[in-house]
Amino acid sequence: MISLTNAILFLLLAPIIGGLVSGIDRKLTARMQGRVGPPILQPFYDVGKLLEKENLVVTTSQNFYILSYIVFIVVSGALFFAGGDLLLVIFAFTLAHIFLVLGAYASNSPYSFVGAERELIQIIAYEPMIILSAVGMFMVTKSFFVNEIAASELPLILYLPGVFIGFLMVFTIKLRKSPFDLSTSHHAHQELVKGVTTEFTGPNLAKIEIAHWYENVFLLGFVYLFFAFNPAIAIVAIIVAYLLEILIDNTFSRVKWQLTLKSAWIVAGMMGLVNLGVLYYLAGVLI
């Protein structure tokens, strides 16, 4: 049932794709701001440089948490692409993120500490919607297994438009894009310096960056599932969704945690729930 080949392909290709996506993202953002922007390969240069730098830590255990973070991100991503159980994938991702949060807590520095608290707020903001998305997919395809969902002939997006909109909303949080970049990224530095990543240097920061790439690829894969009935449309959908995120990133100021939590829960939750509710009672008719 589980495809090892896909998992290995993910392991090898995801960083490349993720890095390129991130590079294109930066380039486009720069263009939107009227700048030339960095080369497309810039993220790779950054990571390459970080790996060459010295490793400074506040406490040694930080290394452990970050290593665990990247390992579990990779494991859960691989599980996703291998066609595993979607809920298990989501929980494994949560586990990975908890490690990142713990890494930030471990250093006991005010910025990373508050960053960790905010990261937790983000987790509780996006997690319900992600679970509801998985549930929605189950309701249509009758399976939690990614490979079965992907193989489904049904156009999920037509059954789950509300869920998809809700997902796009938390997608913004997950990608750490404005207006929801509370805890880290290059935007939140005005409040928290670098939030969760403040106390990580060199190689550790590189690991976090690579883990982000893996994670972004996973998220794009999630978008793919909504359009899995037609791979061509799915690719277009992924591109459009990502472009939309870049646009949103560039046209919003960052909001506060209250609004993040409320909007993620109310808007996304309700969108998703209403959609699922309709689906639930029409289930007999439609599917």
Partner: peptide, 22 residues
């Protein structure tokens, strides 16, 4: 950093955090 000079062309970023800076 701003559009006229745009040092991000060269990969230069203003980090604001000594632990990330070169």
């Amino acid at each position: 950093l701003t559009p006229l000079y745009d040092v991000e062309r060269f990969g230069i970023i203003n980090t604001g955090n000594p632990k990330h800076a070169d």
